Amino acid sequence: MLTEAQWTEAVALLPFLAHPDTAITRAFRHEAMLMRLPEGATIFSEGDACTSFSILLSGQVRVFKIGETGRELTLYRLARGESCILTASCLLSERQFPAIATVEQMVEAFVIPQTSFQGWIDTYPAWRAYIFQLIAQRLSTVMAVVDEIAFRRLDVRIAQFLLRGSDPLQATLSLTHQQIAVELGTSREVVSRILADFVDDRLVRVARGSVTILDRQALVERAEAS
């Protein structure tokens, strides 16, 4: 059962819990637990069984796949108020987790046991609507990843990635070529080659462990190239 302080946090996170007399509100308060995981912890490895469903209160989780060559592909990240659709899918289908989920920033999360998660979907319309909306939103994120990999040139994706991670007041990003490759699902060698082209075009300056944007407008134009 959640403490008074934890319950206050849960209501702020999930508005459908604001009505104290509803059945889902009572069930959530009595059956959910607050879990903490340190940075670097592995939540799921590929092939693990799913035994609970989590909603992040704070921190950040990365969900990714590793290919046969060892190349990583980030599917999505979870932050405050978000949940993992792969976990939901595994709980509903009773299948194993098909990816890897790790903690990037220390996590606090509300955890609902598998039996409660499944029973609430059958019983409480507010919970069912929340889960279905979650699945719809996160699927659009995954489809955007597929679209980028399948249909967008990698130089365009790298330009977009650098622009997303910076702002006009902070043009230097602390990133290695390998980190960029991992985020975009490609190889370090390909990233290095494209960054070298950006350097030749005076779009960026590359140093060990950092990339500095020199011509933001030109990089925007590269990011918008078809």
Rank of each mutant, 00 (worst) to 15 (best):
V61P: 01
R138D: 03
L219P: 01
Q6S: 11
L195G: 00
R62T: 09
T102R: 11
R29F: 13
D147W: 07
T3N: 10
L13Q: 07
L92A: 13
Q137G: 03
P20T: 07
E108M: 04
E104P: 07
D122I: 04
I213N: 01
A218N: 06
A41E: 14
L75T: 01
A129C: 05
A79E: 04
I213K: 00
A99Q: 03
A99T: 01
A136T: 08
R216F: 10
L169W: 08
I135C: 12
P168W: 05
L73Y: 11
L173V: 04
T87Y: 04
R128I: 03
A129F: 08
A12Y: 05
A49G: 07
R80W: 02
L78F: 05
A144C: 05
I121E: 12
T74E: 14
L134V: 06
A223W: 02
E9Q: 10
V190T: 14
A41T: 11
L139N: 12
A109D: 02
V182K: 11
A171C: 06
L214Y: 02
P38W: 09
W120A: 04
R222E: 13
T172N: 02
A101V: 06
F44G: 00
T102S: 10
D21C: 08
R188W: 04
L169S: 12
R152I: 13
F64A: 02
T51D: 15
L56K: 01
K65I: 06
L91I: 06
A88R: 01
F53N: 00
V220W: 11
P15E: 15
L163H: 00
M35W: 08
L56A: 05
L78P: 00
F53K: 00
F16N: 07
E183N: 07
R208W: 09
T42E: 14
V11L: 10
R62E: 08
S192N: 08
L78V: 05
A126N: 11
R193F: 09
D215N: 14
Y124T: 03
V191C: 02
L139H: 12
A18M: 09
E39R: 15
Y130K: 05
T123R: 13
L17S: 10
R208C: 08
E224N: 13
P15T: 05
R216E: 13
T102A: 11
L34M: 14
R202N: 09
T22R: 14
Q133R: 15
L184V: 03
V63C: 04
D200H: 09
A88T: 06
L57I: 09
R157N: 13
T186V: 09
M1C: 04
R157I: 14
P20W: 12
S210M: 07
T25N: 12
M106W: 03
R157F: 15
Q178T: 11
R157L: 15
F161C: 07
L73T: 14
A23G: 08
R152V: 13
H177R: 08
S116A: 15
A159C: 10
E39Q: 15
R193E: 10
A129N: 13
A79W: 05
Q118I: 12
L139F: 10
